[in-house]
Design a binder for these strands. Sequence first.
RNA 1: GCGGACGUGGCGGAACUGGCAGACGCGCCAGGUUUAGGUCCUGGUGUCCGAAAGGGCUUGGGGGUUCGAGUCCCCCCGUCCGCACCA
Length: 947
Amino acid sequence: MTEHSPDSPAQRYDAALADSIETTWQQRWKEAGTYHTPNPAGPLTDGPTNGPADLAERPKLFIMDMFPYPSGTGLHVGHPLGYISTDVYARFKRMTGFNVLHTMGYDAFGLPAEEHARATGEHPRANTEVNIANMSRQLARLGLGHDDRRSIATTDETYYRWTQWIFSQIFNAWFDESAGKARPISELESEFETGLRETHVGPPWSALDDAAKRTLINQYRLAYVSEAPVNWCPGLGTVLANEEVTADGLSDRGNFPVFRRPLKQWMMRITAYAERLLADLDLLDWTDSIKTMQRNWIGRSEGAHVDFRVPTAADDSGEVATIRVFTTRPDTLFGATYMVLAPEHPLVDNLTTSAWPEGTKPSWTDGAATPAAAVAAYRAQSSQMTDLDRQENKVKTGVFTGSYAVNPVNDASIPVFIADYVLMGYGTGAIMAVPGQDERDWEFAEVFDLDIVRTVEPPADFDGDAYTGAGRAINSGFLDGMEIDDAKRAMIDHLVEIGAGESTVTTKLRDWLFARQRYWGEPIPIVFDADGNARSIPDSELPVNLPDLIDWAPRELDEDSEPEPPLGRATDWTTVELDLGDGLRSYKRDLNTMPQWAGSCWYYMRYIDPISDDVIANPVSEKYWMGGDNPEEGGVDLYVGGVEHAVLHLLYSRFWHKVLFDLGHVSTPEPFKRLINQGYIQAYAFVDDRGIYVEASDVVEVEGQYEFEGKRVERQYGKMGKSLKNSVTPDDMYRDYGADTLRLYEMFMGPIDQDRPWETKSVVGSQRLLQRIWRNLIDEETGELTIADVAVPDDLNRMLHRTIDAVRNDMNELSFNTSIARITELNNELTKLDGPTPTVVADALVRMIAPLVPHVAEELWSRMGHVDSVVYAEFPTADPALLVDDHVEIPVQIKGKVRSRITIAADADEESTKAAALADPRIIELLDGAEIRKVIVIPGKLVNIVA
RNA sequence: GCGGACGUGGCGGAACUGGCAGACGCGCCAGGUUUAGGUCCUGGUGUCCGAAAGGGCUUGGGGGUUCGAGUCCCCCCGUCCGCACCA
């Protein structure tokens, strides 16, 4: 640790003194359990030793940080920004009468530990534990007031047991559309049993054997196995959720290519919740940008299904083939001059004719001899293309299938194409093309020489192609003359009448692909019986632990390979003897693990109660901390984390929470009431002439240029981190300044939600403030207190109370940068004072800094003679009488420009203020007898004279 | 292309419902303490004109509403983020 400079005073607040103060108090807090937060019931009802007796009876406040993955590379100063913010807020709230729950856990399953294992041979669990220990140490040194009894890791057996339990809950539930909520699967069975509900196809329930019943029931479950095109990522050896694939067709993590291929996989029926996930955003105190991102991701759109018959083709059951499309513009149906199916659409084979029909235009065939050849070639070509290729190739392509469909409103015969601009993953995978009102369809129609019929009248001056704006219907039979909304309604009514369609709602959101073919995750608590039906493992048998594997890494895989779960290699483990109600039998285990999102979907529940082993969390504590008495307003009171989780984590977590809510396990419909996205810490980075990043800390500035080892380097700017080689570690800051200075600096840099540039040279400003506060209370030579019980000068007293008022407000608004500015101003006044600092001022000052810089505040508090911790001291309250001055100085403007100032009584009325302004010598001089047209007086604020 | 956020000194930023733009800090300048440097202390610091008093200009650009606009409205310009052939 840093030594005192030999000539600096013995009791100067420098890095060495800060270090000893900080480590001392961290030890004492630990011993006293200062941050132990009492639960109202069940486990953990104890508060801190010598803490407030009434803590558990106080109003609650539940504060959370998005919990981190315990990385092996350690922290840089950007990581704890959010943690410090929540800590300051939590401490402030403790001092203003709240029982505050704040702790920290680790999202410890996941790929990096597994990759590390592959590289080093070290078991992921061992590596994970080392990383957690290191990260805990770095965070503890910051003095965060976490209740460490509640710290959890998703890899704890006592934790993932409940992650698996939730999976079982979801598996054993179905979504009742009429009730709009999930219900236990047993209720579905009894509805079938009693005949209340009919099996939708095939024989009645009573005619089914057990296996057939299970197969039927499985189709309803919220967690289900389906064979569907999935995102296969050979580079990671696993399949991925849609949300984990970028627009470029690469994996979110690692940037590996992702391929679409059909596979049997676990899915979660999140689409059933789309409406509620959308509607309940209104209950939340989140930023508009995050809400918008969620809305866009869910992508709800209202429209209609329309069925087009193809008289010349049959579907697989021998009926006349019908192409169902989704459209948001049923009003334009008269302008539908052709149709397009996605190349992967299941009807394509049925529609593809053996020969080109009469009237086929040459451009429709792509030069192929038959439709079958053209379709096969086109499908092969489009399946090779990545999403990126598709984006780059904006020219419309496609081929004719040889079939014609019938437009249900005018019986027109319209050609059916396949083209890759129609996506199988949205709507029905087929469209009616209306080139007159859709730009994409217009482009396609131009390339393939198809008819274009306008069905909405464009304005007279419109000279574009497709017209998508408002207007009256034309060329549309019974719709002619109607505005779009009326025409939509009329058309839907008509479609219903003729049995060719209905109104419907489509979402972009797809069901959540939940299985991963990796080792280091929660095993899915499912076994398969001899009939191949999935059965959940009874709660009493949980957790399902991972087998000990020597060879856990995925094998080298290529695009054509099958995903191969590593768990399949644990041959002893893959089969299990269980009694699932019909005697002891042998079952095959599910070999997949859960995605990393699973553990982070519900961790707030175990923060509330990490101990109970008979329930997921004690229900009384759950209701207390989540605010279940007022469900609509309930949820975690403050959740702080990075904006990168705007869709993935926050959508999955809300979904799980809603299922648990429907099943009665939680008391609120939403998990996180208020969400704030903290900004990132950015820093300068430097590249040499080869374009390679050099260690930023070794770059020197020479005459406005930057040099690394004597060579010119170019300065850039970006998010702090390993890849830009511009990290600054908190350990260096503890050594050079102390944790309190680091905390203060990070909070002073700017508003919580804004990115900010790190400048190590500026940290000294925050240290100076602490030094000056220290010097105002402590003699630097002797260490004696320099405060005294003297009267506070009136001016200082008023300033003190104005400061208290402002700081209280600002802290409540999480505006810590302005709080610190106000505290600085007060302290600057104290510095100017002749003589000792009045005790009342010192007392308030220490209380006010306590949330920001808890160690030095605690030290000063203790030196001032207090035995109890400052952590639960009361935050000062301003005396309203001292916030108003008897006299105020206000500006006098002439035509909006400040020309003079007058001092008037604070409660002076309009008349007397006006008189005082007009009597001011300076004003008289400047007006110079000019005619006064108007005088605006804002009492107590200003006077504006219009002359 | 669509959607969202934002633009204030050399830098980070402040300014409640329209009412003294630039709080607070970094940096810089000057002075003091010190053997010197650093630390520490005091003062100054948007910009232009002026010796000063004082005045002009100024919140990305342009227009508007208003006695008064960083703040409200319209049109541009720029930066960042999300989505992207979504029917």
